[in-house]
Design a protein around this nucleic acid. Structure first.
Lengths: 204, 204
DNA sequence: GACTTTACTAAACAGTGTTCAGTATATTTG
DNA sequence: CAAATATACTGAACACTGTTTAGTAAAGTC
């Protein structure tokens, strides 16, 4: 019978509504300044209702952080057109930084905040991160076929690349570029450091 | 007259008591699970008293994060005995990681959390970070005198080094090393990546 | 001894995430 | 169709949080 199916669909729609409203509010006012009560008010339901669709706030964060990875994937789409894997790796770094800068709240959620990770059970792995990371590993392996990164472990190398770019971006997002007094220099601190990274990679 | 001096001393002692108690509780239960009320209870004063010594919670965090930099400085002390600047740079990286691992809460406060930075006024610079960063810049300049990093900007290079090591450490602290399923590999993910970084540095 | 300053606090305010008993509606069953 | 059950939702409470303010009691000054 179609009743059960309709109910299931309604339940999923409600989940979606909560998620989209949460995302909208988070992007408008930031994570720090958005509460479950704000979200509940926006969808015109009681706060308790949210708990019928998400175990707790961390699980809501976790669901949103999956959306973040999908967004990131869209950013990365154009990269497939670049034939040379090393050039693709360089462009990946630039795109990664651009994603972080254009979506700082999402970047925070995906790679800095603890909340979405707390929603994972102990010993449960980080599926979204895992999948995305897999692409980088493959890319490194492709680079190795063209003679680069010889004798290096692709997995290890991928982590190194990721952490290098994350280091730059996360310092900027969390305001630590304020060590730099010169405003002009601060603006290109990340880009110029990335240039050093790329130079280093080309020599490895 | 000695009355004013005694009062000033008492005020400073009280500030110190709050700070030390806060530090103790933060290290015991973590920042997330320690409130101003907890701290007030521990020192057997009312929560409102804390506001006579600190503008708000962020300022307390800021005061603590200065203590963190002093702790870090102590970690770095033995490095002065290393004559070669590049070797000193390498050892600095290792020590930095060791500090982060042995004091994750402090590392978080110093380089990841936004709270202590929010305590700074707009356009006010980050004094502690600035001072510490200065040492790295000097170290890079010394390296340049021995022929390394030619044609690179020392300041820019220092930021690149810092961000590289921070990237590794912050991913670990904020649980993103969970992308790695293999527990054994995960344990040395940071160290092995650091080895790649050092190799890259030696070729720059 | 009266006046003022200082150090402190009780209580409230406005918010947070979360739980649970209860209700109204929708669906299924006899 | 009526009774029983299942579903979706909520009001109100709980136990917190950071922060402010009016008021108090002691200490210091004149």
């Amino acid at each position: 019978m179609g009743v059960a199916e309709r109910k299931l669909r309604a339940k999923e729609e409600m989940r979606h509504l909560i998620l989209e409203t949460a995302r909208k509010l988070f992007l408008e006012k930031g994570f720090e300044h958005t509460s479950l009560r704000n979200i509940a008010e926006a969808i015109e339901y009681s706060p308790a209702t949210i708990y019928l669709y998400f175990k707790d706030k961390n699980e809501l964060f976790h669901a949103l952080h999956i959306e973040g990875f999908q967004m990131m994937l869209e950013y990365m789409q154009p990269l497939v057109a670049i034939p040379d894997p090393f050039e693709r790796l360089i462009e990946l770094s630039h795109t990664y930084i651009r994603f972080a800068r254009e979506n700082p709240e999402f970047y925070d959620l995906m790679f800095i905040m603890t909340a979405p990770m707390d929603a994972l059970d102990t010993e449960e792995k980080w599926a979204m991160g895992d999948q995305t990371f897999g692409f980088v590993v493959n890319l490194i392996e492709e680079c190795q076929k063209t003679g680069r990164f010889q004798g290096k472990d692709a997995y290890q190398m991928a982590f190194y690349c990721w952490s290098s770019v994350h280091g730059l971006v996360s310092l900027e997002i969390r305001q630590r570029t304020r060590v730099c007094h010169d405003e002009k220099m601060r603006a290109c601190l990340v880009e110029d450091s990335l240039a050093y990274f790329i130079e280093a990679m080309s020599k490895l």
